[in-house]
Deep mutational scan, measured.
Amino acid sequence: MAAGGDHGSPDSYRSPLASRYASPEMCFVFSDRYKFRTWRQLWLWLAEAEQTLGLPITDEQIQEMKSNLENIDFKMAAEEEKRLRHDVMAHVHTFGHCCPKAAGIIHLGATSCYVGDNTDLIILRNALDLLLPKLARVISRLADFAKERASLPTLGFTHFQPAQLTTVGKRCCLWIQDLCMDLQNLKRVRDDLRFRGVKGTTGTQASFLQLFEGDDHKVEQLDKMVTEKAGFKRAFIITGQTYTRKVDIEVLSVLASLGASVHKICTDIRLLANLKEMEEPFEKQQIGSSAMPYKRNPMRSERCCSLARHLMTLVMDPLQTASVQWFERTLDDSANRRICLAEAFLTADTILNTLQNISEGLVVYPKVIERRIRQELPFMATENIIMAMVKAGGSRQDCHEKIRVLSQQAASVVKQEGGDNDLIERIQVDAYFSPIHSQLDHLLDPSSFTGRASQQVQRFLEEEVYPLLKPYESVMKVKAELCL
């Protein structure tokens, strides 16, 4: 049975990233139509530049190519590739079939990587351009969430054990800070992308030097003109047959890092959902379990974690691919890159769409948070109580021993009897502590235990987050809708 299948058929496997999760716009960027249309555009740009620099290419040939950029006979191309065992030459023939007058000058002087690699770089750039505003929107939604809850005390956790208090907004800023680093890295790697350009079979530009009869300047002009037509500021000066596969490492490393950030955020949300302090959106008709109707599973956060793990592992592909590119190139890269580049971007696209949807509907339960604080705060307040007693004339050592005994009794009630923490009640009825009984409410005010959390939130948002989001103001209103 021949390899390949009808990918629109229910009898043929289709990647869930495309069929179930990723956005239509990201799927289109990695589609065959987008790819092969870009090949034709690159052939047109090459012909236009070659004509401008004096090669015998007519206006009629150029116009014929322009008129057929979208006229792609995919069936013919597939048949040609089956016959020739070469995808680029299959599309040269297919393009030439609908451009008979231009057929002889299509791909003039070029090698397969002229269309293959340059198209990949265009796709990487455009895919990054799709991700950047999506990530900015996630940051914006979380920034709104953090600002609104900047002063809401909550129990902090280290080692997932109760620690000092923080605020809900401050905790959210930990998430935002990681995503801001990801946004900066995505922008950097996007701006650092260079075009492969017009380089020939081993990167020496020998074929173009021959076409222009040894004119170095025209060869350099050709490279520059096509690079500018493709919208790049610069091209690699040095290439082998391909652009260095280190570029793929750079791009997928940034995406993998984004995956790590999203995994951490969504894990926190899942843990908070278990504590009943916070939940992701839950639709009115949504079913959490087929057997347990009360369940409210954090399905979206779980999906993000599941896909983020996949995204983090994909960076190993370009690392290994770059390491086995012998001399000017081997074909070890080809099949692998067809999979890992598309999957990385479709996965990143999915987790950003999902995280935006989550961040637009996060639900906080202040009463649950308050109750958990009441359970733990008495123990945390013991040092403040000791200091207040010393100020009232008591002995630190005597007070410490009193607190120690009462704390152990209260802990026994919590752990052995399943009761509430009654340390404060014990202190309130103990005559030894009568000098500070009137101060206990103040000493137990949760806001006095959150330090500068709310001020940190305000400063972080104003100095770091809002300036970073400013270039994306025009796209901030787009909502994230999930079908599944």
Score class of each variant (00 low, 15 high):
4 G>C: 12
4 G>S: 10
9 S>E: 13
10 P>D: 14
11 D>A: 15
11 D>N: 15
11 D>K: 14
16 P>Q: 03
18 A>G: 15
18 A>S: 12
26 M>R: 02
26 M>F: 00
26 M>K: 10
27 C>R: 08
28 F>N: 05
31 S>Q: 09
32 D>S: 12
32 D>H: 04
32 D>P: 06
35 K>L: 06
36 F>D: 13
37 R>V: 01
43 W>S: 04
43 W>Y: 08
45 W>V: 07
46 L>S: 07
50 E>R: 02
50 E>Q: 06
51 Q>L: 05
51 Q>S: 04
53 L>I: 09
54 G>H: 06
55 L>N: 09
57 I>M: 02
57 I>N: 05
58 T>S: 09
60 E>M: 15
62 I>Y: 01
62 I>T: 04
67 S>T: 00
67 S>P: 05
71 N>W: 07
72 I>A: 03
72 I>F: 15
74 F>Q: 00
75 K>S: 13
75 K>Y: 13
78 A>S: 11
80 E>Y: 03
83 R>L: 08
87 D>V: 01
89 M>D: 03
90 A>D: 03
92 V>R: 02
93 H>P: 01
94 T>L: 10
95 F>T: 08
101 K>W: 06
107 H>A: 01
107 H>W: 01
109 G>I: 13
110 A>V: 07
110 A>Q: 02
110 A>E: 02
111 T>R: 02
112 S>I: 13
113 C>Y: 00
115 V>H: 15
115 V>K: 08
116 G>R: 04
120 D>N: 05
121 L>T: 11
121 L>C: 09
123 I>V: 10
127 A>C: 09
129 D>A: 08
133 P>V: 09
133 P>M: 08
135 L>T: 09
135 L>F: 14
140 S>F: 14
144 D>P: 10
145 F>G: 04
145 F>Y: 13
146 A>N: 13
147 K>R: 07
148 E>G: 03
149 R>G: 06
149 R>M: 12
150 A>P: 01
153 P>Y: 01
155 L>K: 03
158 T>S: 00
158 T>G: 03
161 Q>V: 01
161 Q>Y: 13
164 Q>S: 03
167 T>N: 03
168 V>M: 02
169 G>P: 03
170 K>L: 03
174 L>W: 14
174 L>C: 03
175 W>Q: 15
176 I>C: 01
177 Q>F: 01
180 C>K: 13
180 C>D: 01
181 M>W: 05
182 D>Q: 08
183 L>K: 10
184 Q>Y: 11
185 N>G: 09
187 K>F: 01
188 R>E: 12
191 D>E: 14
195 F>W: 05
197 G>Q: 14
199 K>H: 05
199 K>Q: 10
200 G>S: 09
201 T>D: 03
205 Q>W: 07
205 Q>G: 04
208 F>H: 06
208 F>M: 09
210 Q>R: 02
210 Q>Y: 03
211 L>E: 07
214 G>M: 13
215 D>L: 07
216 D>E: 02
217 H>V: 11
219 V>L: 05
220 E>N: 15
220 E>K: 07
221 Q>R: 08
224 K>M: 08
225 M>E: 08
225 M>F: 10
226 V>G: 11
227 T>K: 02
233 K>M: 14
235 A>H: 04
236 F>I: 08
249 I>G: 02
255 L>I: 04
259 G>D: 03
260 A>G: 11
260 A>Q: 15
261 S>M: 02
262 V>D: 03
263 H>E: 09
264 K>T: 12
265 I>L: 12
265 I>M: 14
268 D>F: 14
270 R>K: 04
272 L>E: 02
272 L>N: 08
273 A>Y: 05
274 N>M: 00
275 L>Y: 05
276 K>F: 14
276 K>Y: 13
277 E>C: 01
279 E>D: 15
284 K>F: 10
284 K>P: 15
285 Q>W: 14
288 G>Y: 13
290 S>C: 10
290 S>L: 06
294 Y>F: 13
295 K>R: 07
295 K>N: 13
295 K>E: 00
296 R>M: 13
298 P>N: 15
298 P>R: 13
299 M>A: 00
299 M>F: 13
302 E>D: 08
302 E>K: 07
302 E>S: 00
304 C>Y: 10
304 C>A: 01
304 C>G: 10
305 C>Y: 11
305 C>H: 15
305 C>S: 08
305 C>P: 07
307 L>R: 01
309 R>V: 07
311 L>Q: 08
312 M>V: 14
313 T>L: 04
315 V>N: 15
321 T>M: 04
323 S>A: 06
323 S>V: 02
324 V>S: 01
327 F>A: 04
327 F>L: 11
331 L>D: 15
334 S>Y: 07
335 A>M: 00
337 R>G: 09
338 R>I: 10
339 I>N: 10
340 C>S: 14
342 A>M: 00
344 A>P: 02
345 F>W: 09
347 T>E: 02
348 A>W: 04
349 D>T: 09
349 D>G: 10
355 L>S: 15
356 Q>S: 00
357 N>E: 02
357 N>P: 15
358 I>Q: 00
359 S>P: 14
360 E>M: 15
361 G>E: 02
363 V>E: 10
363 V>Q: 00
364 V>E: 11
364 V>K: 13
365 Y>D: 05
366 P>C: 14
368 V>L: 07
369 I>G: 07
374 R>G: 09
376 E>F: 09
378 P>L: 09
380 M>S: 09
381 A>S: 15
381 A>D: 12
383 E>G: 12
384 N>V: 09
385 I>M: 14
387 M>G: 13
390 V>R: 02
392 A>S: 09
393 G>V: 12
397 Q>S: 14
397 Q>Y: 14
398 D>P: 09
399 C>P: 09
400 H>S: 09
400 H>F: 13
402 K>G: 05
405 V>R: 02
405 V>I: 04
407 S>M: 07
409 Q>E: 11
410 A>W: 14
411 A>V: 14
412 S>R: 13
414 V>R: 11
414 V>T: 07
415 K>H: 12
416 Q>W: 12
417 E>F: 11
418 G>V: 14
419 G>D: 09
419 G>P: 00
421 N>P: 07
422 D>L: 06
426 R>W: 15
430 D>M: 14
434 S>W: 13
437 H>G: 03
437 H>D: 01
439 Q>R: 05
440 L>A: 08
441 D>G: 10
442 H>G: 02
442 H>C: 14
444 L>C: 14
445 D>R: 13
451 G>Q: 02
451 G>E: 01
453 A>W: 09
456 Q>F: 12
457 V>I: 10
458 Q>S: 13
458 Q>N: 11
459 R>F: 13
461 L>H: 15
462 E>L: 01
464 E>P: 15
464 E>W: 15
468 L>Y: 00
470 K>L: 13
474 S>P: 08
476 M>D: 09
477 K>W: 10
477 K>V: 10
479 K>T: 14
483 C>G: 12
